[in-house]
Amino acid sequence: MAPPRPSDVRIEPVPDEPAATVALEDGRALLVADYHAGYEAGLRDERGVDVPSQAPDRRERLLALLERTDADRLVVLGDFMHSIGEPGGAERGELEVLLESLPDSCQIAVIKGNHDGDIESWLPTGGRADAVTAYPPVTVTDGSGVSIDGIGFCHGHTWPSPAVLDSDIVCLGHEHPCVRLEDDIGGSRLERAWLRGRMDSTPFRSRPEYDDVGWLTDGSPPRLIVVPAFNDLVGGTWINRPDQSFLSPFLPAGLADGDAYLLDGTRLGRYQSV
């Protein structure tokens, strides 16, 4: 039997923030998911809802987190932008200003989400320097993800690559996990949450692309971390409602013993019983 896998201590949530630090062999990364740049413009165009842009606030929060955590790279678990098709002016402009604001030394990895379209066709994947702007280099990966130093990163809207599934820890976004909390007098509020547990082999065993993933038949399953959305306007999956369906094709069946945690670190216990 394969040896037990290491715990997920290499990934530490940032207190009170929808972000985590990741200890890699050659540095520290800040991990975020579902930035959804240009979301307010999308609300106006798609639903006729006029919401002032919060792009400056999103940018400043992200820059502050990079400085606070002393991270030298940024990993975005998909849906960096909001428009599913060609990005609009507000959306592309938001990301361009963000990239211009990042330190030149910051390495950026974007795992494509279902909203990211052909983002690699206009992001500066080789870096760009001219008289006007200087962008750090960006690496764009397909939504099935990439494994770095034993940690798998994917968006979650599609099946993960075999390499991601065979990692020690698997991180994904897409789900925007939230919990609905009720008080004693019937009031309720919605809170973003982390969802953490171990992977269950059930939805993966019958898929031939995973035939060489050893833990599916003999071994210790990896830890699974579902990262809350960085954008606080986008809503999400109410993970503690029994009638709420999940968005990912392998959730909730692919999650065993999942616990929910608030952004402040409060452990709520099994997400189904919160």
Results as ranks from 00 to 15, higher is better:
residue 101 S to D: 12
residue 103 P to F: 05
residue 105 S to H: 10
residue 34 D to C: 13
residue 99 L to T: 03
residue 29 A to D: 00
residue 98 L to K: 05
residue 39 Y to P: 05
residue 128 R to Y: 12
residue 45 D to E: 10
residue 44 R to V: 04
residue 99 L to E: 04
residue 80 F to E: 04
residue 122 W to E: 00
residue 65 L to E: 02
residue 120 E to C: 01
residue 104 D to W: 09
residue 111 I to Q: 06
residue 52 P to T: 10
residue 75 V to C: 01
residue 127 G to S: 06
residue 123 L to K: 02
residue 92 R to G: 13
residue 70 D to N: 13
residue 37 A to R: 09
residue 58 R to W: 06
residue 121 S to Q: 14
residue 113 G to F: 15
residue 134 A to T: 00
residue 89 G to C: 01
residue 79 D to L: 09
residue 67 E to M: 02
residue 132 V to F: 14
residue 73 R to A: 01
residue 45 D to Y: 08
residue 44 R to D: 10
residue 81 M to H: 03
residue 60 E to L: 13
residue 110 V to G: 06
residue 95 L to A: 08
residue 127 G to D: 09
residue 66 L to K: 13
residue 59 R to Q: 09
residue 120 E to F: 03
residue 22 V to W: 15
residue 83 S to I: 03
residue 103 P to V: 02
residue 62 L to V: 12
residue 80 F to L: 15
residue 80 F to V: 08
residue 73 R to I: 01
residue 81 M to E: 01
residue 134 A to L: 01
residue 88 G to T: 02
residue 37 A to L: 13
residue 45 D to F: 10
residue 83 S to A: 11
residue 52 P to Q: 07
residue 101 S to H: 05
residue 85 G to E: 08
residue 37 A to Y: 06
residue 93 G to Y: 04
residue 98 L to A: 07
residue 51 V to G: 03
residue 109 A to L: 15
residue 62 L to S: 14
residue 78 G to V: 11
residue 110 V to D: 08
residue 63 L to D: 08
residue 117 G to H: 12
residue 46 E to Y: 14
residue 57 D to F: 12
residue 127 G to N: 10
residue 50 D to Q: 13
residue 43 L to M: 15
residue 79 D to A: 09
residue 39 Y to W: 15
residue 51 V to L: 07
residue 120 E to K: 04
residue 131 A to L: 10
residue 58 R to D: 06
residue 24 L to F: 15
residue 23 A to H: 14
residue 36 H to G: 13
residue 75 V to S: 01
residue 67 E to D: 08
residue 100 E to L: 07
residue 49 V to H: 11
residue 111 I to A: 05
residue 134 A to D: 00
residue 24 L to S: 09
residue 95 L to D: 01
residue 116 D to A: 04
residue 51 V to F: 05
residue 76 V to A: 11
residue 124 P to V: 00
